[in-house]
C-alpha cells in the first residue's frame, strides 16, 4: 500500500493495515470451459426445420431448390408404407457389412504386418500411401470389369474404401505402442506372439477403433458410388434414382437415411470403444 501514496485514489496513508476497508477479490475465471447442454442440439435442429418449413411454405425457398421438410418426411413415410425401406436397407447393409468387414480385417492384417515387420513396411507402406488417395470412384469402371456388375463391384468399392484408412490407422497405432511396455514383455521372456497379442494389439486398439470411425464413414460415403452400377435396391440406388427423376423430396429422404446410418454406426463404434477401451477413461 505504501507505494500507492502518490496516487490520489489510494487509501489514506495514515490508516493502519489492520483497519483498511476490505473487499472481495473479483472473480475472473469464468468462460472458456464447456458445460454440457443436453437440450440445445435438438432445439437448434427443430428450429432449423421449422424455419425451413416456413421458408418452403411461403415460397421463400423455391420448390425446385429444396423440398419442404414435411414433403421429405412424407417421402420417408412412403418408403415405410410400401415396405421398400427394408429392401433398400437390407441391400445396402449387406454391402456395407460385407465390404467394410472384409476391408477392415484385411486392413488390420496388412497394418499389423507393416507395423511389425520391417520388410513389409519397406515394401507396402509406400504402396499404401500411393493407393490411398486414389478416389475409388475413379476405379469403378475397372471394378465392373474385374468384379462384375453384381454385388462384387459394390462390395469391392466399399472394401477398398475402408481398407486403406484401416491400414494406416493400424500401423500408426502399432508405432505408437509404448516401447517400454514391449521392452517389459521381452524382459519377462514373453514369446513374440504373446507380445503381439497381449501388448501390441491392445495398445494399438484405440488407434484402430478411431480408424474404424473414419473407414465406416468412408464406407457410407462410397455406398452411393457403389450403387451407381446395376443396383436395383439400396439407399444409394434410391438416392440416385430420386436424383434422376428430380424427386427432391425422395432425395432428401434418402440423404437423411444415410445420415441416420452414419449416426447408428457412430453409436455402435462408441459402444465398442466403451466395451473394449473401458480401461482408458
Amino acid at each position: 500500500m505504501s507505494l500507492d501514496r502518490s496516487l490520489p485514489s489510494a487509501a489514506p496513508a495514515t490508516e493502519k493495515p489492520g483497519a483498511a476497508p476490505t473487499r472481495p477479490v473479483p472473480f475472473r475465471g469464468s468462460g472458456f470451459t464447456h458445460r454440457p447442454h443436453r437440450h440445445v442440439a435438438p432445439l437448434v435442429f427443430a428450429a432449423l426445420l421449422i424455419l425451413w418449413e416456413i421458408g418452403s411454405r411461403t415460397g421463400f425457398i423455391s420448390n425446385i431448390s429444396l423440398p419442404a421438410p414435411t414433403e421429405a418426411a412424407e417421402a420417408m413415410a412412403d418408403l415405410f408404407r410400401s415396405g421398400m425401406i427394408w429392401k433398400h436397407l437390407s441391400a445396402s447393409l449387406f454391402r456395407l457389412t460385407v465390404g467394410w468387414s472384409l476391408g477392415t480385417l484385411l486392413g488390420i492384417a496388412v497394418g499389423l504386418a507393416i507395423g511389425l515387420f520391417s520388410v513389409a513396411r519397406a515394401g507396402l507402406s509406400p504402396l499404401v500411401s500411393a493407393l490411398f488417395p486414389i478416389p475409388k470412384i475413379a476405379l469403378l469402371p475397372l471394378f465392373i470389369v474385374w468384379f462384375g456388375i453384381g454385388e462384387g463391384s459394390k462390395v469391392a468399392t466399399i472394401l477398398f474404401g475402408s481398407f486403406f484408412p484401416t491400414v494406416i490407422a493400424t500401423y500408426g497405432g502399432v508405432d505408437n505402442v509404448d516401447r517400454s511396455l514391449i521392452r517389459m514383455g521381452q524382459s519377462f521372456g514373453l514369446s513374440w506372439s504373446s507380445i503381439v497379442r497381449k501388448i501390441i494389439i491392445p495398445g494399438a486398439l484405440p488407434a484402430i477403433l478411431s480408424g474404424f470411425r473414419i473407414s465406416a464413414s468412408i464406407a457410407i460415403i462410397l455406398l452411393v458410388a457403389a450403387e451407381m452400377i446395376g443396383a436395383e435396391y439400396g439407399i444409394g440406388a434410391y438416392i440416385l434414382m430420386a436424383g434422376a427423376l428430380y424427386a427432391i423430396d425422395q432425395l432428401i429422404a434418402g440423404v437423411a437415411l444415410l445420415s441416420l446410418l452414419g449416426l447408428a454406426v457412430a453409436w455402435l463404434i462408441g459402444r465398442a470403444e466403451k466395451m473394449l477401451l473401458g480401461w482408458r477413461i
Binding site: 469402371p141 465392373i144 470389369v145 462384375g148 456388375i149 451407381m228 452400377i229 446395376g230 440416385l240
Partner: peptide, 21 residues
C-alpha cells in the same frame, strides 16, 4: 425384364460388350 441402371452410356456399353447385361 430386369432393368439394370448403369448411370452413364459408356458404362452401359461396357457392360453390354462384356456380356454383363
Amino acid at each position: 425384364i430386369r432393368i439394370v441402371p448403369m448411370q452413364k452410356v459408356p458404362a452401359v456399353i461396357a457392360a453390354l460388350k462384356s456380356g454383363q447385361i
